[in-house]
Structures are given as structure tokens and as C-alpha cells.
Amino acid sequence: MHALVQGVILGVLTGGVYALMASGQTLIFGIMKVVNLAQGAMVVMSAYLSYQLFVSFGVDPFLAIPVTTVVMFGVGVGVQLVFLRPLRRDDKSELSLLVTFAVALLIEGLLSITFKTTYRSINTSYANSSWTVGGYQITVVRVYAFALSLVSLGLLFLLLNRTRFGRAVRATVQNPDSARLLGVESEKVAALGFGLGAATAAAAGSVYGLLYPFYSGSHYDLISRLLSIVVLGGLGSVGGAVVAAVIVSTSSAVVASTVSPAWSEMTFFVILLLVLLVRPQGLFGKVGRGAL
């Protein structure tokens, strides 16, 4: 019982970070129908950025987030402009999938040359401190990370629901053709949307670097988790991704704490298959087109 509750606490707190990463990924899918396999690599890249900022200038990873999000926003826009926009074919969705895979490899290669392939971790003064509440360990970093994820998701929500750009994004997700007819510049929305997705990866990445040791190949661990979350939530649904992140993260943490960490990776895949069996469009996805 103790292990179960501990697992739930851990899972929910970590779920916030995954929600942030996955919301960017599902947003990218919603706008462009591109499954971004480079999302994990972008998270790891931004973890390295905040690592470097911390080591060289002593910048706290939480304070580095404005910097990393801006940088990664630029990277995201660049990737969209250079690699994804030129794909103008019927099999665009298939090609874009492979292109983002190649981008992930490119980022991994560049990171392993710059930073070698040893594990890094960001050791802030509060990295190992924790509170004990009713016999349960709650690490300070995870609480901060959870709070930060809530704030970032709130900002994302405001951006999508209160701004002109957000309205263009939502229109594109719901019906790209009508949106274009009504004057939405779909190319611009796609580029900025990819940048926005990369920016959420950046915010999550700084926190990821605090929570776990990482190396250039860590994005492989992230890909399968993020994809399971995104499919469970419904491809294209940001709200769905948040709910799904908490579900997936909690169940895998519970499996890890009650059964064995060896099988926790299995949880993602089992959840993914169950979703596809029972409700292929995911929790909040609509059949045929994306929802927000």
C-alpha cells in the first residue's frame, strides 16, 4: 500500500513534465499532421542547454527556461522551414515521419560530439532535498517541476485561447482547408506551431535535466513514452495529452514501485495497445480530424 501511494505521488508529479513535452508534440500533429519523432531529441537538447548554462554561468535551470525556450523555438521554426516545408507530396505524412526521425538522429549526433556520451546531471543545491509528508517522500525538485509545468501549460492555454495566433492554430487543427479559405496563413501557422511545440520541449527539457541524468541517446527513452501519451490522449488534443500524461506516468510509476522497474517500460506499450483496441482515436481525439 505504501509503495502504491508513493508510486502515485511520484507518477502524478512527473506526469506534469510529460504533459508539457507531449502537449507540444500533439500540437505539432494537430497543426501539420506530422508525428514529430524529434520531440524527445529536442527535450534532451534543451536539457544540455540548461546544463551548460548552469555549469558555465551558474544559472538555475528554472531561470534558464526563458533562454532555452527562445532558442528551441528558433530551432523548431528552422527545422520546419528547412526540412518539412519542402515536402509537398501525397505521401507527406509518411515522409515527414522519417524526416523527423532523421532530425532526431542529427541532434543526437551533434550532441554526442559536443558533450560526449557520458551521463550528465544538473546538481543544484536543492537537487537531492525532499519533504516527508505522512511518511511519504516528496522530492522538492519534482514539486517545483510540477508547478512549473502547470504554469507553462496555463500559458500555452492562454496563448491558444486568447490570442489571434491561437485562434488561427485552433482553426487549422479543426479544419485546415476552411482555415485557409478564411485567411489563415497556413504556412506561417505551421512554422510558428512547430516552434511552439519545440518551445514546450525546451521548458520540459530544463526540468528533465534536473529530474534525471541524461545523455545524448536519452531521447530514445522519451520517444516511446511521449508517443503512447499522445495516442492515448487523442492525436492533436492538447487537453487529452495532459490527462494522458498523468495516467501513463502514474501507472508506470505504480508498476515500477509495486511490481518491478523492469516492467514499467512495458506499461506504455500495454496502454498503447489497449487504447488502440478499445478506442483507437484516443480519449479526446475525434475520428478523422484533430480536436483541441
Binding site: L37, E94, L272, L276
Partner: peptide
């Protein structure tokens, strides 16, 4: 897309 996701997972 989903097929690719399942297979890579």
C-alpha cells in the same frame, strides 16, 4: 501514423 507509432514503441 499510428502504425508507425506502435511499431517504434
Amino acid at each position: 501514423d499510428v502504425f508507425a507509432i506502435v511499431t517504434i514503441t
